[in-house]
Design a protein around this nucleic acid. Structure first.
Lengths: 225, 225
DNA sequence: GCCCCGCGTCAAGATGGCGTCAAGATCGTC
DNA sequence: GACGATCTTGACGCCATCTTGACGCGGGGC
C-alpha cells in the first residue's frame, strides 16, 4: 500500500487525516513541523506528501522547495488561506495540487488517488542491470545475452531479483529461499543449486566457471556486476 | 510552446481563457462541445486540456473517459458546481485537477504550469500503433489488418489499451485484470486466455504462433510492436 | 590416505498454467 | 418481446515448469 506523509501542526486535524487514510489502507506517517517533515522524507520511502502551509517553524514553500531539491514525490498542499498569491507560489514551487480548507474528505481522497495514479506511470528508474556478458531489465522482464533474447522462467526472475537487489553483497542461502519459496523452505538448498545451474547455463559465458553468480560455499550466493 | 485545448460552452469565458493563455504564449484551440473536444484531441497533438463540466452535449465525465481511453494528456476540470461528488467522479475518471468557478486566473495559470511540469517527463503514447500485420487507432477505435477493417469489442479495446501503453514491456496478468475488469478480478486469468485468443485470431497473421501479443508464462503478457 | 559433507549435474515424475472450444448468461437494440 | 452480439463460465488436453531424487566430484577433517 502507498506510504503517505501527513504534515499538519493542528493535532485534531492531523489525527483525523491519519485515521481516514489508515481506514483506506494507506500506510501513514504524521508529523507536526516542517523540520520533521523534511527529516521523515529523507529517511523513508514515500509515495505522497500532504502538507499544511501554516506550519509553526518553516514556511510551507520552503518545505516544498526542500523536498523538490531531491525528490519527485507528489505533494498535495492544504491551506486555510484563500490568498491567490499563496496558491500560485506553492504550485510554482513544485506542489502538485492545492486544496483549500475547509475541504471534503471525499475530495481530498480523490485528489490523493489522482496524484498517486499519475505518479505510478512515471517510472524514473529503468531498473536495468548490465554485465559484460548479459543485461537484465527487471521492470520489463527482458534478459539478453550477446544481444540475443533469453527466456527466464518466473522462479528464475524471482531469484534474480532477490539476489541482484544487493550487488556485490553476499546473500545468505536461507534468505534467498525464504524470499522466493517462502519461509518454510529455508533448508531446501538443493533448489538453489538447481536454479543457479539453470541461470548460469542461460546467462554466464562459461557456465562451468561463473563470473557473476558466485557461490560462497556454506554461506550463500553473491551477484558480481 | 505547449498546445492547450479549451473546452468551454460559454463564449465569453472561452474567449477570456483563450486570450489569457495566448498572452502567455500558449498555443490555444477552443471548442464549445464535448464532441468537438474529442474530435480535436484525436487529430492534434495536445499538451493540456481545460475542460468545463457543464457542456451541452456530453457529460463531462464521459469526455474524460473518452480521452483517457487512449491519451495521457493532463486534464484540468472547471466547474461551477460545488458538489463534492462531482469532483470525486471527475478526478477518479482520470482528471488531473479540479478548479471551482469562480477562480482567479493566476491560480488557473499556476495549476496549468504545475500540470505541464509534471507531464514533461512522461513521453506521449501514440494514438496509432502499427505493426507488420495490423494497425490500431486507439483514438478512433479502428483496427485494420491487411488493409481490411477488423471489429473489436469494447472489452477487447480496453485490454489492448492496457497492454499497448507499455510497448515491449511485460505487463503482469494481475494488472491487466485489475485495469480491465476491476481489482476484484485479479485472479481470473482465464479471462485473459479467452480474450487474447480472440485478439490473436483477429489480428495476428498466424494466431497459433503470435508475434505481437506474447504470453510470458507465469508472469503476464507483452506487446511487441 | 580415507571418509564425509556440500556443491554441481542430470533426469524423471508431478504440477499447474496455457490455449482451445463451446455452452449458457447477459446486455443492448430494434 | 425477440434477436444478435458480447461476456462469462466450465471442461479438456498439452506442455513448460517445478519438484524430487540419485549420482559424481572435490575439499577439509580425522
Amino acid at each position: 500500500m502507498p506510504r503517505v506523509l501527513i504534515v499538519e501542526d493542528e493535532p485534531a486535524l492531523r489525527r483525523a487525516l491519519a485515521i481516514n487514510l489508515k481506514a483506506r489502507h494507506y500506510e501513514v506517517d504524521a508529523v507536526g513541523t516542517g523540520t520533521d517533515a523534511l527529516a521523515a522524507a529523507a529517511t523513508g520511502e514515500l509515495d505522497l506528501v500532504i502538507l499544511d502551509l501554516g506550519l509553526p517553524d518553516l514556511d510551507g514553500v520552503e518545505v516544498i522547495e526542500g523536498l523538490r531539491g531531491w525528490s519527485q514525490v507528489p505533494i498535495i498542499v492544504l491551506s486555510a488561506r484563500e490568498a491567490q498569491a499563496q496558491k500560485v507560489r506553492a504550485l510554482d514551487a513544485g506542489a502538485d495540487d492545492y486544496v483549500t480548507k475547509p475541504f471534503g474528505m471525499d475530495e481530498l481522497l480523490a485528489r490523493i488517488r489522482a496524484a498517486l495514479r499519475r505518479a505510478e506511470g512515471t517510472e524514473p528508474v529503468p531498473a536495468v542491470v548490465a554485465t559484460a556478458s548479459f543485461t537484465l531489465d527487471l521492470a520489463a522482464k527482458r534478459a539478453t545475452r550477446d544481444g540475443a533474447e533469453v527466456r527466464l522462467t518466473p522462479t528464475e526472475w524471482h531469484l534474480i531479483e532477490a539476489l541482484v537487489r544487493r550487488p556485490g553483497t553476499l546473500v545468505p542461502a536461507s534468505q534467498l529461499l525464504a524470499e522466493v519459496w517462502g519461509p518454510a523452505y529455508e533448508k531446501e538448498t538443493n533448489y538453489l543449486r538447481v536454479y543457479f545451474a539453470q541461470l548460469r547455463r542461460k546467462l554466464e559465458a562459461v557456465p562451468g566457471t561463473p563470473e557473476h553468480f558466485i557461490t560462497e560455499p556454506g554461506l550463500g550466493y553473491r551477484f558480481e556486476p
